[in-house]
């Protein structure tokens, strides 16, 4: 997609239009997702399987998005679906390679993959451990995430959720700007991911 042709609407707005029956929004949404899916899948899937994997993922987004009336965080949610499809693809390739003589490269790639459905399925308890660890080691990150999550529980749109969380963080850091808050959140997110991956790694090595 030519960047100049990028729609002005966010993907969530396009999803809302799609679910309201707007054909143009649907076309834009799925073309938009397709480009992003291809960008990710081409780094993980061999060229001759690329289109199939992306199409499979888009089909699932189409079906489940419609069923669940998904209009929030559509891109992030769609990426979890792509992740599952790629994980399944790896597994089917693994089964194939077990039956065939294979080079080391594919086997290494499979071993290196952290994208199998089992790991996604077990994400909840591992994430709980990662959060607890994060809060202990980086209390400020604990506060930031706790503020956001508690604020989300109260409901409202992005402005309300974000404002409540920011105000909470500002009680400790009165100089904190919205931009600073987002930057801090982003760094905390990196910490959380690193912790989460470490825990997944530990469990895999024990398993």
């Amino acid at each position: 997609m030519n960047p100049s042709a990028i729609p002005a609407n966010s993907l969530d707005e396009l999803a809302t239009g799609w679910l309201a029956g707007d054909h143009s929004a649907e076309t834009q949404l799925f073309e938009n997702l397709r480009v992003r899916f291809l960008g990710i899948a081409k780094r993980r899937v061999q060229q001759d399987h690329l289109e199939d994997v992306v199409q499979d993922a888009l089909q699932i987004v189409l079906r489940k998005g419609g069923e669940q009336h998904r209009t929030e965080n559509v891109l992030v949610w769609s990426l979890t679906i792509l992740r599952n499809v790629i994980g399944n693809h790896y597994q089917s390739r693994r089964r194939e390679t077990e039956r065939m003589v294979t080079g080391e490269t594919i086997l290494d790639n499979l071993a290196d993959s952290a994208e199998g459905p089992d790991q996604i399925h077990g994400a909840g308890s591992q994430l709980a451990m990662a959060l607890a660890d994060l809060a202990e080691r980086f209390p400020r990150c604990g506060r930031i995430f706790a503020g956001i999550l508690a604020s989300q529980e109260l409901g409202g749109g992005p402005r309300e959720v974000s404002q409540r969380a920011l105000e909470f963080v500002q009680r400790e850091d009165p100089e904190m700007t919205r931009g600073g808050f987002y930057t801090a959140l982003h760094r905390c997110r990196s910490q959380l991911r690193a912790t989460h991956e470490r825990i997944i790694g530990k469990e895999s090595s024990h398993g």
């Binding site: 992003r36 960008g39 990710i40 780094r43 965080n73 891109l75 992030v76 949610w77 990426l79 979890t80 792509l82 992740r83 996604i120 994400a123 909840g124 994430l127 709980a128 959060l131 607890a132 660890d133 994060l134 809060a135 202990e136 209390p139 604990g142 506060r143 995430f145 706790a146 956001i148 999550l149 508690a150 989300q152 529980e153 997110r189 959380l192 991911r193 989460h196």
Partner: peptide
């Protein structure tokens, strides 16, 4: 895009049950 992709499962999980994970953070802190 890669960063978003690799963190998607975690963020979806967090947003699916904010009260549970906020409780965990509170307890841990």
């Amino acid at each position: 895009l890669e960063d978003l992709y690799s963190g998607a499962v975690v963020s979806e999980e967090l947003r699916a049950d904010p009260s549970r994970y906020a409780s965990i953070l509170v307890t841990a802190s």
